[in-house]
Structure formats: structure tokens, C-alpha cells
Simulated assay, not measured.
Amino acid sequence: MHADHHVQATDPILPSVHRRCSLAPPQTREKYLIGALALLTLAALFAPALPAAAWHIPHFVDTRPWLGVPNAGDVLSNLAFLAMGVWGSERLRGRNDAPVGASWFFVGLILTCLGSGFYHLDPDAPQRLVADRLGMAVAFAGFLGIAASERISTRAGEAVLVLMMVAGLLAAWVARENLTPWVAVQFGGMALAVGLALTRPRPGAVGVPLGGVIVFYVLAKLFELGDATIFEATGHIVSGHTLKHLAAALAAWPVIRALRDRRVG
């Protein structure tokens, strides 16, 4: 048994088989994915421009300082991203069965902590939004890579990870003047994630519950929209935007839980 296992592990035929699989004609789901990505690209490039100057920077209702930290609730709540990013990265150590994009997803959470915290220290400085969006773009690309690899194929996950990473980072930079690419990446990408969540996992998938991640994302958006309402309803204990950060960070929990359920022997 040991000798056979050694032969299989070092068999020179296996890399060539992997290359042939990677160059195989697209499967049905891969064709649908190519079509969806093409639509997103067309929307980002040719949809009417949304001038960044016309975008109203929201007034975050909780501006209370704490221990010298301005806007402490919205700044310090970003530590939840750091905690989940470090926790998830630790779960990946020693594993070879993690879905494509998982490591970038957790790295993106750590970068989101840094970028969003930097932005909320002085949210009236619009140039800080770039730092906020760059971390989000990395995390979002990682999640879509996970989704595509779980539901379609490994090579689909790799392609989506690279394409959405490049598109997200470029859109975050272009959003200083034109928000259209950023909107296409964020909302179009989430529509793609919902579509993937509604399909069956492929054989051999880790089993990441994509729907759970999406639920936390939607909850975070609702908290964001109810920033002032929640602040008043809780007697100024916590704002909706602070809760948004916590809910968005918890979106990593379904991924981390799936990694806990499978161990490498």
C-alpha cells in the first residue's frame, strides 16, 4: 500500500492529465459563467458613468470618540474583520483541500479592517474611500473564487478569482471619478454569487454554504441603510453602520465552519 501510494504521488502522468483537464472544452456551467462574466464586463465598460463627485458621502450618525479614537464605534468595529481573517487563515494552515480563493478571502478581510478603519477615522476625506474599497475588492474576489470552485470547477474558481481581483482593484481605483465599474463589480458579482448558491455543489466540494455568506452580506446592507434609525432605536448605544461591520465580518463564519468540518488526514 505504501509503495503504491508513493508511485501514485510521483507518477509523471498526473501533471499531464491535470493539464489536459485544464484545457478541456468548457462544461455547461462554465459556459454560463463565461456569459455572466461577459455581461458584467460590458456593464462596467459601457453603462452610463456615475460621477463620484455627485455621490453623496453618507453622514455616519455615531461620531462619538473613545479613548482618543474618533468615530470609535465605526472604527473599532473593524477589528471584527481582523479577527475573522486571522481565524480563517489559521484554519487554512496544513490543508490542501481548501476551495480556490479561500486564502485571498481571509487576506481581504484583514485588509478590509485596515482600509475601513483608516477611512472611518476621517470619513469626510473622500480619498480615503480608495483604501476602504481595495480591501473589500480582495475579499469579494476571494469569495467569488470560492463560490465558482465549489459550484462549477477548480479552473472556474481560479479564473473568477483572477478576473474579479483585477476588475475589483481597478474599479476601486476608477471609482474616484466614475462609480459605474464599482457598482457593476459589487452588485453584479453578488448576483453571480446568488446564482451559484442556487446550484448544486460539484463532486468533491468542501461544502461551503454560500447562502449563509450571502445572508450576512444582505444583513450588513440593511444595517448600513438603517444607520440613524438603529442608533435612535437603541438609545444611542450602537449605530447601524457599526452593526454593518460586525455582520459583514460574520459572513466569514460559514466558510470557517466548513473548513472545520473537513480535515486533511
Rank of each mutant, 00 (worst) to 15 (best):
D4C: 14
D4G: 10
V7W: 11
P15Q: 04
P15S: 03
H18F: 14
A24G: 09
T28E: 15
T28A: 15
A43W: 11
A54L: 07
W55Y: 14
W55S: 15
I57Q: 10
P58R: 09
D62L: 00
T63F: 05
R64V: 12
P65Q: 04
P70T: 02
G73N: 00
W87I: 05
W87V: 05
R91N: 10
L92A: 05
A98C: 10
A98T: 07
W104Y: 12
F105P: 04
G108S: 11
L109F: 14
T112A: 08
L114E: 03
S116M: 02
F118C: 07
Y119C: 01
H120P: 06
H120S: 06
R128M: 09
A131H: 08
G135S: 09
A137K: 01
A141G: 11
G142N: 08
G142F: 01
R155N: 07
A156M: 07
A156V: 05
E158R: 15
M165W: 05
A167V: 06
A171G: 10
N178S: 11
N178L: 05
L179F: 10
T180H: 02
L192Q: 06
L192N: 07
G195F: 09
R202V: 08
L210F: 10
G211C: 08
G212F: 08
K221V: 09
E224L: 09
L225K: 09
G226V: 04
I230F: 01
G235I: 03
G235C: 05
H236A: 07
I237Q: 11
G240M: 00
H241G: 00
T242N: 00
A252H: 04
R262T: 12
R263W: 14
